[in-house]
């Protein structure tokens, strides 16, 4: 797939990410004044989302992240996508080939940039700009995007997105994101939505990306999707890697730990 001396597609070295809960949230100012009045120190709870985590993802791998809600899967994806910064440690990856080729498609949340009051078409262009595609490039891709989204009722393309069903929303968001031609695809629990036919289409697209040697990192709670797509599974638990390896083996360990029958 790639030369032996080629650097990993994505590497995390001793990454620590902590969140402060309560201390600097919305109740912060009130809490601080209250604490000052009581002459007590404000209670801050530090939650360690990722604890000294090291991980190397090779080019061409399709990696599934497993774990309970709150185990740090989304935090890890956010760090890869450069949305969040590590508290210590580092994230490294090779820079993109050329400026017109997005290296990484942060499908963190499909349609994250969609504005409810813009129409579907307007959002396609807007989302494209957020993901780094110029209007001209988007024009060339528009037809293909709409074909992939394949709306049952195309008249909705010119209606505000707030009138969309959640399935339509995901379809359009997914269609835009996969048309950014990324080298690394980060997907956060969005493939399980949409009807069966659309899901199959998404799987086919993922297979295509995989065949092209692109790297995919996705979060899923649907073990059928994991078995279907992943070449490697990583189970995150208590801010650390609990298991890393063959999807089938990791799923078995994961299920055993929670007493879920396979």
């Amino acid at each position: 797939m790639s030369a032996p001396d080629s650097p990993p597609a994505m590497a995390a070295r001793n990454v620590v990410k902590k969140f402060t809960v309560g201390g600097s949230g919305y109740a912060g100012l009130k809490g601080r004044i209250g604490a000052a009045l009581k002459r007590a120190t404000q209670e801050k709870k530090i939650v360690v989302a990722l604890d000294n985590l090291s991980l190397t993802i090779e080019p061409g791998e399709t990696v599934a992240l497993l774990g309970r809600n709150g185990s740090g899967k989304s935090t890890l994806l956010s760090l890869f996508a450069n949305v969040m910064k590590p508290d210590s440690g580092e994230i490294a990856f090779p820079a993109s080939i050329d400026p017109l080729h997005p290296r990484l498609s942060p499908l963190l949340e499909v349609g994250a940039g969609f504005h409810p009051d813009l129409t579907g078409i307007q959002n396609v262009y807007f989302n494209g700009a957020i993901l780094g595609i110029t209007r001209k490039e988007m024009e060339a891709r528009e037809e293909s995007i709409l074909e992939f989204a394949d709306f049952e009722r195309p008249e909705y393309l010119n209606a505000p997105v707030r009138t969309y069903s959640s399935g339509m929303f995901i379809r359009l968001g997914f269609a835009v994101a996969i048309h950014t031609d990324p080298e690394i695809i980060l997907v956060d629990e969005s493939m399980a939505v949409g009807d069966e036919a659309f899901q199959q289409k998404c799987f086919a697209k993922m297979d295509e990306f995989h065949a092209e040697g692109r790297t995919i990192v996705f979060v899923s709670h649907d073990m059928n999707i994991v078995r279907r797509l992943a070449t490697r599974a990583i189970w995150l638990s208590d801010a650390q890697i609990a298991a890393d390896g063959e999807p089938d083996q990791v799923i078995r360990d994961y299920h055993k730990a929670f007493g879920i029958p396979d």
Partner: peptide
Amino acid sequence: SMAENPSQRPLVVLRPQ
């Protein structure tokens, strides 16, 4: 040079600011 081969591409490193 931004070469096709990833090993020849510059490495982006994200560290805490």
